[in-house]
Design a binder for these strands. Structure first.
Length: 285
DNA sequence: CTTGTACCCTGACCGC
DNA sequence: TGCGGTCAGGGTACAA
């Protein structure tokens, strides 16, 4: 579920909590999730946290980085040596994580020299963490094939050019990370609703005006998602163990049969590329 | 080249 | 209460 706004919220949380922290130890409980040499980062400190689409790159003081993708259910949670009452309260048990860490879904534990810890939890084990030289990060196939990020290095003109290169349904286009990076199912649905474009239309069929409308809608929903701290629809939580609230502001996502907020006709659900699409068949054309 | 589909995995949910 | 089946979806491998 984590898409650009959730990962950006994570990035900000990691930056706030971990900048300058020195790694004392990394305990890997599930080797399939963690690749690379731990020894090459022990004793180093975090110097920068970047995000590329839905992926994170945590840079260390010795020219190495830890690249990470949390996929569907990964969580980074930071805790001081002794959890304060407030931290425990913020920790949301309904999201599948109890107040005690580590738990059965904790697969990697970072310990810092000041005694604080960072836990990587992942129910479905789809996520990954990789230690590698910083200069090699963008050679990883995942990063090298990533399209531009709609909130940093993408202009409306470039967006339209990329849009014109694909005959796939525009919904699939938005979710294709090779075209643009960071948009997943929730924000793709909401951006198409906001721009009043039918998700079934071919990407290249959009007029210049529609392309501009869609681009602005994509940026708007992503910014709104970040402003609400992301969507905790399934089990996303932030670095401090708290929830986001964008799920309370979905425009169409998950609203099958509910009245369209614009024209009151029922929202319809269809499946595109194996994913649910929610849209208003009357006012999205 | 593009587009579609199965799969990885587990928890939630539904019907019986 | 519990059991089986289905669904959710990011990315990827592979088929068409």
């Amino acid at each position: 579920m984590p898409e650009l706004p959730e990962v950006e919220t994570m990035r900000r949380g990691l930056e706030k909590k971990l900048l300058g922290k020195k790694i004392q130890d990394i305990e890997v409980r599930l080797p399939t999730i963690f690749q690379g040499d731990i020894e090459s980062v022990v004793g180093e400190e975090f110097v920068a946290f970047q995000r590329f689409g839905k992926a994170l790159v945590m840079q260390l003081s010795n020219d190495h980085s830890i690249a990470a993708h949390v996929k569907m259910t990964g969580q980074f949670v930071y805790k001081e040596t002794k959890g304060t009452e407030k931290e425990v309260k913020n920790f949301h048990p309904k999201l599948g994580v109890g107040s005690e860490l580590p738990n059965k879904w904790t697969h990697v534990i970072f310990t810092f020299f000041d005694g604080s810890k960072l836990f990587y939890n992942d129910i479905r084990k789809f996520g990954w963490l990789k230690v590698l030289p910083t200069k090699d990060v963008h050679s990883l196939s995942f990063f090298s094939s990533l399209g531009p990020d709609p909130l940093s290095n993408l202009s409306v003109k470039k967006f339209y050019t990329i849009l014109q290169s694909s005959s796939a349904p525009v919904k699939n286009f938005l979710m294709n990370q090779q075209k643009i990076a960071g948009v997943g199912n929730i924000y793709a649905n909401d951006a198409l609703f906001l721009s009043r474009i039918d998700p079934r239309r071919s990407a290249k069929s959009l007029s210049e005006e529609e392309g501009k409308r869609l681009f602005e809608a994509v940026q708007a929903v992503l910014k709104k998602g970040i402003a609400y701290g992301g969507a905790s629809e399934i089990n996303y939580i932030n670095v401090e163990g708290g929830k986001g609230s964008y799920q309370d502001h979905f425009l169409v996502y998950g609203k099958e049969d509910e009245a369209c907020s614009r024209c009151q006709n029922p929202i319809r659900r269809i499946v595109q590329a194996g994913r649910s699409t929610f849209f208003c068949p009357v006012c999205q054309t």
